[in-house]
Design a protein around this nucleic acid. Structure first.
Lengths: 101, 101
DNA sequence: TATAACTTTGACAAAAATAGTCAACACATA
DNA sequence: TATGTGTTGACTATTTTTGTCAAAGTTATA
């Protein structure tokens, strides 16, 4: 279910990197990258960006997926998750409108 | 901007509780409640429920606000926050549909 | 088989974030 | 004064997240 992880794994393979090489390139332990790709550990935005760069891919969608996962994680399995998302959306829209304060 | 905090403060005042009394009733330190109401510290869902109960209020909206704040906090000031929320919403809808797996 | 490159796993430590405790302060009012 | 109100900050404790490492499992190929 970890879409960023799966996507980044696919991208890595397409780009011809082994886990080790990729990990070295972005300066983290292989174990961590392995776990992140499989959704066992969370990515950081920083690493998502580094990997997108390494794989020469546009990072935007990846970042969006990354954030979306973060959000869903924050909601766990809350009964009112959907309602909460809608409220959050409204508040964010409102905030973005008045970004000049 | 902390809407749960403000709402719970109003509810408390309407219900005629002093900070101290309310804090004692839900078994936390006054300082924490004071900070939570003012958004300086985050509520836990558990405390929101306890307070709703104490103030004899329906907890649902409060919980939704609580979760919404949690979500917005997770998004910080991300450029793609809104997009992320939409993706999260889709995934949540999808998940709720297939809750029989 | 053997060996090499790959990925996964788990135990552990380090660091960071969150939560809780406490005493003191400021203000108002009886 | 004395009592009740809310706020603040320094501190500790606890929990969560992150990083490190070695060993084990997997796969491909000579």
């Amino acid at each position: 279910m970890s879409t960023v992880g799966l996507k980044l794994r696919e991208l890595r393979e397409k780009a011809g990197f082994s886990l080790r090489k990729a990990a070295v390139a972005i300066d983290i332990d292989v174990a961590i990258l392995s776990k992140m790709e499989r959704g066992e550990r969370k990515f950081s935005k920083e690493l998502v960006l580094k990997l997108a760069d390494l794989y020469k891919t546009n990072p935007d969608k990846l970042v969006i997926d990354f954030l979306s996962e973060k959000v869903l994680y924050a909601l766990e399995d809350e009964e009112f998750g959907l309602e909460a998302l809608k409220v959050a959306e409204e508040q964010l829209k409102y905030k973005n409108q008045n970004e000049n304060e």
